[in-house]
Design a protein around this nucleic acid. Structure first.
Lengths: 233, 233
DNA sequence: TGTACATCAGTGAACGCGCGTTCACTGATGTAC
DNA sequence: TGTACATCAGTGAACGCGCGTTCACTGATGTAC
């Protein structure tokens, strides 16, 4: 797997293009990814970029893939920073990492979870596995907790509605999650809340209501964990 | 307050401009609101539009205001469709209206809660009151429930963290909500979750995980209501 | 009721700028014998 | 070790399209006397 000099240079240029694109997204929004603007910043002609990405859409797809993987990396790292049997702590660390990543890479977060880019359609066979990677971290911890008899959902959660229950069971099978239904449901249920808080914070809606978004975020996660019978050290 | 013939025509044209802008948003995204494209569709020259909106940004501001108010209307109507003392039912109806509005007016929802439009900055003194209007419906119901001894938060929620608690108390005072702290907290806590679910559904992330988004949405609301000691009829 | 004048809606040209993509090309770097 | 040839990075012109905003203007509608 050694790279020739040429291959390395080529890889560098591909990375440089993406990193300038990210800067432009940060400054002008995800709809402003422009090959011409990138070329201008690199001191190249536009046409040179076509050697590296055959079209605008291909560049966007590459950025989306990178973003999902970078987010999943952050979550995995946070998870492995905690002792294996401290499930609540692991989940807290992972969700804090999720938020921190979103705030530090807000343009990337908008790219993968915000308004679609007009005219662009992500190839699902490429993006879906990358999404799953991050989500698997969360449900994985919940499944471990359950396997060790630590997951104690309160009564309300014990009877999932029929379609949701059926669909999730099917999904677990299909995507090879290899876990029971409960962790899957808890993962989704908690995730949508964290996601909502982060989205609102990112677009300046919650700070004006909540004062200290991080404190609020921690408090809410803690409450959710308690609902599942999990407690922090 | 009667309008002259001219004023009525003028008002009609202003509305027509907005409604075409909405169609374009729906088709091309919020970043694609373009005076030239609207003029083209109306069979006018661009410059004619400047009689109705002095700039692109003014049009966007008008669309945002309309959206917040239309959403608040939907929530208020849903609320008043339920008997006054059925607090859980009222909250359920309001949150279902919130979701229905978001799905039916997805471009408007993206406009007010999604990625910011590059280069546009909403004048907060105009938009904030409109946001508050919708939110007031939710916390209003919770406050009524509490005043009638129906709000029974479970233990976890009784000790809010210091900054959040202080900030919300201050906010209640400042914006004249005239309610205790608990309903405010519960309103925010529930709202962020509903918001997350809707955002993820809108951008096609949850349907692939949950199967039946509406069933899931109802189930989650119901659980939140139970957490607050409220039950549906 | 008729006329003069003011108000308003809409035009058309222009300024200065942006975009993605295709094509035929130059000149440097790497490879095979 | 030197040379011939293939590969690759990058150029520059062109196509056909988009945008917001300013300016001096025409012609219809409404208003005051």
């Amino acid at each position: 797997m050694t790279m020739t000099r040429r291959e390395r240079l080529r890889e560098n240029t591909r990375e440089e293009i993406k990193s300038i694109a990210r800067r432009h997204m940060q400054e002008q929004g995800t709809a402003a990814i422009s090959l011409r603007a990138i070329a201008r910043d690199m001191g190249l002609t536009v046409t040179a970029l076509y050697r590296y990405y055959p079209s605008h859409d291909d560049l966007v797809t590459a950025l989306i893939l990178d973003a999902f993987n970078s987010l999943a990396d952050a979550m995995e790292n946070a998870d492995s920073s905690q002792p294996r049997e401290r499930y609540a702590n692991r989940l807290m660390a992972v969700m804090l990492a999720y938020r921190a990543w979103a705030l530090q890479n807000s343009a990337d977060f908008q790219l993968i979870y915000g308004n679609p880019i007009p005219g662009y359609h992500a190839p699902r066979e490429i993006t879906v596995p990358a999404v799953v990677r991050g989500f698997r971290v969360v449900v994985g911890i919940l499944a471990e907790a359950m396997a060790n008899g630590q997951l104690h959902p309160s009564v309300e959660y014990q009877q999932l509605p029929p379609h949701v229950s059926a669909f999730m069971t099917e999904l677990i099978e299909q995507d090879g999650y290899n876990i029971p239904l409960e962790p899957m449901y808890f993962g989704v249920s908690g995730w949508v809340k964290m996601h909502g808080m982060i989205m609102l914070e990112l677009f300046q809606h919650t700070p004006a209501v909540v004062g200290d978004p991080e404190e609020f975020y921690r408090f809410e996660i803690n409450n959710i964990l308690k609902t599942a019978g999990l407690t922090l050290d």
